[in-house]
Simulated assay, not measured.
Amino acid sequence: MKTLTLSCAVALALYSATSSFAFATAAVAEAATAALPLTAEYANDASLRGEVGPKQRNVTVLRVQILLDRARFFPGEVDANFGTNTRIAISGFQKNNGLPASGAMDEPTWAALNTDVEPVLVSYTLTEADVAGPFVEIPADMMEKAKLAALGYRNVAEALGEKFHTSPALLAELNPGKDLGRAGEEIVVPNLASAASLAKAARVVVDKSDSTVTLYDAADSVIAQFPASTGSEHDPLPLGEWKILGVARNPEFKYSPKLFWAADPAHAKATVAAGPNNPVGVAWVALSKPHYGVHGTPEPSKIGKTESNGCIRLTNWNAEAMGYSVSPGLPALLQE
């Protein structure tokens, strides 16, 4: 255990002196872990333990989220916050590894995750391409969106967030005093950008019960599990057996207000240009159900936490990865 503050270090040393204080040691260790800064020094420590549960935000949760992302049980946007998406990702990882699917980080789950020994936080030097833009202001109104030539990123932080599957707020916290807009600046990022492509899928399952999209291979093994937004009361998920029709990358969005129950009555049909802030993000996986598909979103922090207009929303990076894994004719089961 690295030095925290004098009081934490002394408490840990005192409680560790005898096995009779094992329970107290664990309690103090969890409290100490919660106080650790979000730095590579601590996040890259495979012996790191601490509280990983509802409403927890700490370096332990950060390590778990990055390891889950690399294991292809995606927790959504990496933000060091333990929420529903992280719990569901843990549960999926546990089930896939023959462990009780509790959604809690017990020792067997830590042992399985920590077989990945690569650092979870690494240094990265910003390139000219990272900071070049162009960056644009994105209006809220759909008709105003349709006037833009492209719906690119709003700023460098948003672009880097998608590149490293991370909330812009966490990137700022990992890099105090750093200029994210300067090429040549060395920053700390989650070690995620170089992840290998997914294997080819044999079938897709969208599950409303836990808001996930899961890809399976021909041997029925899990390739990847993504958190998803899966419909709403007004536009429920179209349950049943469908097929993948095809994949559009960087698609335009054909806006038809009559298909949206809450559309502004003053709106008309419009074409919204492509880009990561397009309403369907960077990829559209079309289903045989007309007007329905799996697609990206410009708001990764809301995946699994807000409703959709009947389609299945993923983060942009998950939608893009899925698009390269699936092919036309693949079965897609949408279930409760």
Rank of each mutant, 00 (worst) to 15 (best):
T3G: 03
C8G: 10
L12A: 06
S19M: 12
A22W: 12
A27I: 13
A27F: 08
E30W: 13
A34H: 05
P37S: 11
L38W: 14
E41P: 03
A46D: 08
R49V: 15
T60R: 15
L67E: 03
L68C: 06
F74Q: 09
P75G: 00
A80P: 02
I90F: 01
F93H: 01
G98W: 09
L99S: 03
L99D: 05
G103M: 06
A104L: 15
V117P: 05
V120T: 07
V122Q: 05
S123H: 10
T127P: 04
I138G: 04
P139A: 09
P139I: 08
A149G: 11
A150Q: 14
N155D: 13
K163A: 02
T166A: 09
S167F: 05
P168K: 02
I187M: 09
V188A: 13
A196C: 00
A201C: 10
A201I: 12
A201T: 10
A219N: 15
A228C: 01
E233W: 12
E233C: 09
E241W: 11
W242T: 11
R249I: 09
P251M: 02
K258H: 09
D264M: 07
D264N: 15
P265V: 06
A268N: 03
A273Q: 02
A274I: 01
V282Q: 02
Y292F: 15
V294Q: 06
V294F: 01
T297G: 01
P298Q: 00
P300C: 00
P300L: 00
S301K: 14
K305G: 04
E307A: 15
N316P: 03
E320T: 02
M322A: 05
Y324N: 12
L330F: 12
